[in-house]
């Protein structure tokens, strides 16, 4: 039972990450490989706020979101006019720099050994230690995140995002400012990723740079792509598949020392196959206009 509850917590955290990334990839057409960087920023800020500043978990999580948003705004302000490959490369740069800071700024992050001993969250006198209670907290956070994402991507603002995805020039001609919209949406997604990071820190009690590297970003991106970007259920389906599939491998009898590599190879193959066979439904422009 505890194992299933643990899976629920993991699913909830990845649901927040995949849904927030889907706003960028599926709705605005911005391919980002820096989502794990903001996930990591959230985890480290929440950890340091709880351990060093002795702040309660809720305040630490809010601080993590604010820092994630401010950092994203600072980075994306000059990058707002970048498009296509340039924007992907810019997000790659952000991810690599963040990973390097997580590993090498030992005074703050304790480097590769990470930070241990993060206490479980306590809300209104109730401790959320253990997967049972934490599943409720992370599940609620996931529902709030998915609802927020749905509200953002529907209605007039959602149509504006879709229009930016289809043709930024047309949006400019219509008197809108796609650069501002991009910054707002990038910050919103970064804030949600930071929230997921603070939840991860509170649940695992330990943060280290390996959890927030480029491969983690690719995994989150794979969840969006494999599930099908641009909808509510697609990314959630991708989360289910990519979280539960490796768990299923445990029962196949693959030796533990090669399980990680086998899992990564299968992720990579899945990403290739889905891109080849379903790339058109996911990333190619013109989808919304044809509808």
């Amino acid at each position: 039972m505890e194992y299933i509850l643990h899976l629920l917590v993991v699913l909830s955290i990845y649901a927040i990450l995949a849904t927030s990334l889907d706003i960028l990839v599926g709705h605005m057409g911005v391919l980002s490989v820096a989502h794990a960087a903001f996930y990591g920023v959230g985890a480290y800020v929440a950890t340091l706020a709880v351990l060093a500043l002795r702040l309660p978990f809720v305040v630490a999580a809010m601080l993590a979101v604010v820092v994630g948003v401010v950092l994203c705004a600072l980075i994306s302000l000059p990058a707002a006019n970048l498009r296509d490959d340039s924007l992907v490369i810019a997000t790659l740069c952000v991810q690599v720099v963040a990973s390097s800071v997580f590993v090498n700024w030992e005074g703050l992050t304790r480097g590769a050994q990470g930070i241990r001993g993060i206490p479980p969250p306590v809300l209104l006198g109730v401790s959320f230690a253990g997967p049972g209670r934490f599943a409720v907290l992370s599940g609620l956070a996931a529902i709030v995140a998915v609802t927020l994402a749905r509200r953002t991507t529907s209605g007039p603002f959602g149509r504006l995002l879709h229009a930016i995805r289809e043709d930024e020039v047309v949006v400019l001609c219509a008197g809108k400012r796609p650069a501002i919209v991009k910054i707002v949406v990038l910050c919103f997604a970064a804030g949600l990723a930071a929230l997921a990071g603070s939840l991860f820190a509170g649940y695992s009690g330990y943060v280290s740079p390996t959890s927030f590297g480029l491969l983690e970003s690719v995994l989150i991106l794979s969840m969006v792509i494999v599930g099908g970007p641009g909808g509510v259920w697609g990314p959630l389906g991708g989360v289910l598949l990519l979280v539960l599939f490796p768990e299923a491998l445990r029962f196949v009898g693959i030796p533990a020392n090669v399980a990680s590599e086998v899992r990564q190879i299968l992720f990579g193959l899945l990403l290739i196959v889905v891109t080849i066979f379903h790339g058109e439904s996911g990333l190619a422009p013109g989808r919304v206009l044809r509808k």
Binding site: D84, I265, L269, L271, I272, T275, G279
Partner: peptide, 23 residues
């Protein structure tokens, strides 16, 4: 496929290659 499709597939291929080497 668009350029983003090639990029994603290439990212997948990178992961497959380095993990195969590790294996």
């Amino acid at each position: 496929a668009a350029g983003s499709g090639f990029l994603l597939a290439s990212l997948g291929a990178y992961i497959v290659i380095i993990n195969s080497v590790s294996l």
